[in-house]
Design a binder for these strands. Structure first.
Lengths: 121, 121
DNA sequence: CCGTATCCGGTCTGATACTG
DNA sequence: CAGTATCAGACCGGATACGG
């Protein structure tokens, strides 16, 4: 399947859909964190600065729904839940890394340009 | 500037900032469109399906502010305005392309997983 | 032609409180 | 520990009307 000659300016094209997916506040950070290996809910919470329980749950559910994260519940008391990237989830890391690299390299210039622009007003 | 050992889970890290920048609905599409070369406002509008004047203006202003797009006004009547990617703007295309490629390759699986997940409910 | 100004509804998020 | 429920504010984006 795939490749029905997508028009990139069509709102249903894959890129748009993927951006809607990862463009939110937390998804990229969660994927990046899980790249370190399987991890418990609490561990992820501690690693990501400022995320709330609600948003972490919501983000993980979304990723699980899209087959990018696998959720494993160990029926214990207290419960233990582990999350890990699926095969598909791991492949997402590469393009994300490219973006991170760009960010690190260019953020200085961007911030500088921003300051200049704001002063010119 | 740059490289004060960013904590990727800090909300001020470059990646986060860049994602806040390009994570919106239109920025990526505008950058992709301008990659074809300098272009007038109306031309961009026609190329991008569904964008409103307001959002195009807003997106272009943001990109201009960050030094990723250059705006040139030709003082004519009626006015003629051209937009083009700056050097920095062009470098952004590469990581964006990586994301597009991932999207094209994996969107099928994602959509499929989503369907299964939703049925399981 | 290329915008700006305004209103307004939907979504995203965070804070808080509660549960198996 | 790992969630769910609820509420309210911020923000995004679209529609519309008007201006240089």
């Amino acid at each position: 399947m795939a490749d029905p000659q997508w028009d990139p300016y069509d709102r249903n094209c894959p890129t748009r859909r993927v951006l809607d997916r990862i463009g939110d506040r937390w998804t990229v950070l969660v994927v990046g964190t899980l790249d370190d290996g399987p991890m418990r809910f609490g561990e992820i919470t501690r690693r990501i600065d400022g995320i709330s329980q609600k948003m972490l749950t919501q983000t993980l559910r979304g990723l699980e729904r899209d087959g990018l994260v696998k959720r494993t519940l160990y029926p214990q008391v207290p419960p233990r839940v582990e999350y890990e990237l699926t095969e598909a989830g791991r492949t997402l890391r590469e393009p994300l890394k490219a973006l991170e690299d760009w960010a690190t390299t260019h953020i200085g210039g961007v911030l500088e340009a921003r300051e200049q622009y704001d002063q010119a007003v």
